[in-house]
Design a protein around this nucleic acid. Structure first.
Lengths: 343, 343
DNA sequence: ATTAGCACTCACTAACTAAGAGTGCTAACA
DNA sequence: TGTTAGCACTCTTAGTTAGTGAGTGCTAAT
């Protein structure tokens, strides 16, 4: 167990290092206002803290630097997140003002988040779990081409252009879309394809000649998987961090950040609350030098998406955690309001 | 005027430097197969070429490096663009295969272009100049919210969610959209707003009570300027270039590339053919260390957009110019086909 | 007109030095 | 017995020096 004094010293060291990015020496600590001990005393305590694995040295006669275990302890026990009123307001303002569309809101959130922290923000979703089909449409552009449009009750619009194969009769096309709208209205988007396969195809065969030929086209137009929506904000804000003092680190950071699907997978696992993974706690090699802080936002019963911040292990955990808390709550609220209006 | 031999030597030096990024020495030149002169002769010629401003030294006893003037001469007189068949095929393949939508095609082009060159590709447009209105729609999501959708004959779909103010009667809304569709069908997208203001508003007042209140909402939903579409591909491919050997250069590159509107302005001026601006020929300070190669693609009579590659002044001009030529032609063709089908 | 030869310049690297920040340990102190 | 002053020691960082090599410009010979 750590003594009171050790806790204090550990906290001060980590706070200091997070701010300065330089190894912290005993003399610097002993000078702080809330530290009434001499440098020698601090040195003894630091040696103990190092032995316990909370601190490290960069070389034998250097100051101390937090170890990953140190950060973990710090995050779990030493940060009392103070709600930062001014940040709350910044976030509230832009969410309330600009809330027209999910995607727009999400994208802006990512940017603001990165701007406030100088880390890289990642937002996954909002996924369409809860969104329900409002309307399907096919608008023909010419005899050969058309655009298929899918509208959800959340205001999400997806569209896909395609060319109409000669085998398909335009009248049949219209008929099919009518049937689809009739049968699929209000069905959650995630279950569209399943329902289409199970219930609609058999029905279609009754009304439409030669439905087999149209099947693939309908499916491609309306029911193909849309790619995961991943917003990454402030890729270059991160370059402000002193960790990126060398070209190779920057290169590897950028090549890491481009593996969008790996990152998306990392975020998907998030459940309730805020999760912090530090350095090697991350299961993906590419970010073993980083810390990732994630939290979910949701609407009603289901999870909608994940907000995350990626930064060096020397991260301003306190600030970031409080920011993510605020943002997650605000987004959840905004979504709740939206749904309430739309039910 | 330059002698034959000087032309040859200038060309060889620039080719060599573009490939290696190292200053070129006289000995290295004299060893090349097509150079039958001794190092001393080369040295004399190089001194002359330097005096004329085509070459520079990085320090008093270094090899030679092309000056901006040297690159200019090289681009204007020394490159006979060889059409590279394999590149042509790469480009043709993906344009033909994936051509469903402008935006999709454009985005893919940007990526391929950057992949093939390791420079940063920028594509502006395709602007909607030629696109004509196919259909306007308002789909109500609830009593308070709706999504407005605009569809063009090119398959471009734009949508905007908004909340319906209480002052507007849903029936009126429907009526208004009908009038709009009736009057605006086939009108070029760029002229929608103008036509709406001039001809439609007076008409609306006859049919709709209290039209003044609806005016702003209709305008916001359908006729507000959509932001310029600028695709930037391969921001990090560029880091492969040996020019980016130092952190500050990378930082300033990224902060430059984020000024999207400045870049968009640069590209807008493009007219026919390929334009190369080298280093200080660029009027925007931020890219005075780079070269920018732009060309337009078009459909029918009007210009549709601009394709550009941004790289270090030590750029593979020959390759890039030939690539842009191919891509511009292919995109123009593809657009032409598309229009022919849609008329 | 061309080229071999040579002195000279400058960047780059490695080896060395001095300064400074920080540690661990010992011995003195309250 | 916990705390602290003092000191020798370690290691990084920055600056200096010297040696090497690539390359040039000029001169004289071909």
């Amino acid at each position: 167990m750590l003594t009171e004094r050790q806790l204090l010293i550990l906290q001060v060291i980590i706070d200091d290092f997070i701010e300065s990015a330089y190894p912290v020496g005993s003399r610097a600590i002993s000078k702080k206002d809330n530290i009434p001990y001499s440098a020698a005393t601090i040195r003894n305590e630091m040696a103990d803290l190092e032995e316990m694995g909370f601190l490290e040295k960069t070389h034998s006669s250097s100051g101390r630097v937090p170890s990953e275990r140190g950060y973990r302890y710090y995050v779990d026990n030493l940060i009392a997140p103070i709600s930062n009123q001014s940040n709350t307001n910044v976030i509230k303002d832009f969410i309330v003002d600009g809330f027209f569309e999910f995607e727009q809101m999400v994208q802006m959130s990512a940017e603001v988040l990165s701007e406030l922290t100088n880390y890289t923000s990642i937002i996954l979703g909002p996924e369409l779990h809860e969104a329900k089909l409002k309307q399907l449409q096919i608008v023909t552009l010419s005899t050969h081409t058309a655009v298929a449009i899918l509208i959800t009750n959340t205001g999400h619009v997806e569209h896909r252009s395609f060319s109409i194969p000669v085998e398909i009769n335009p009248l049949d096309l219209e008929k099919m879309v009518n049937i689809l709208n009739d049968r699929l209205y209000g069905v959650p988007v995630v279950r569209l394809q399943e329902k289409f396969n199970k219930e609609i195809t058999s029905l279609m065969k009754l009304y439409v000649n030669n439905f087999d030929k149209s099947y693939d086209y309908l499916k491609a137009a309306f029911f193909s998987e849309s790619p995961v929506k991943l917003y990454i904000g402030g890729k270059s804000n991160m370059l402000m961090q002193p960790e990126f003092d060398d070209v190779d680190k920057i290169r590897s950071f950028y090549s890491m950040i481009e593996k969008e699907d790996e990152i998306a997978n990392l975020l998907k696992r998030t459940n309730e609350g805020i999760r912090v993974t530090i350095g090697n706690e991350n299961k993906v090699d590419a970010i073993k030098d980083f810390s990732l802080i994630t939290t979910a936002f949701q609407s009603g019963d289901g999870q909608m998406g994940t907000i995350a911040l990626l930064g060096p292990t020397r991260m301003e955990y306190r600030k970031v955690i409080s920011l993510l808390n605020i943002l997650s709550n605000e987004m959840t609220d905004a979504l709740y309001m939206w749904y309430k209006n739309n039910e």
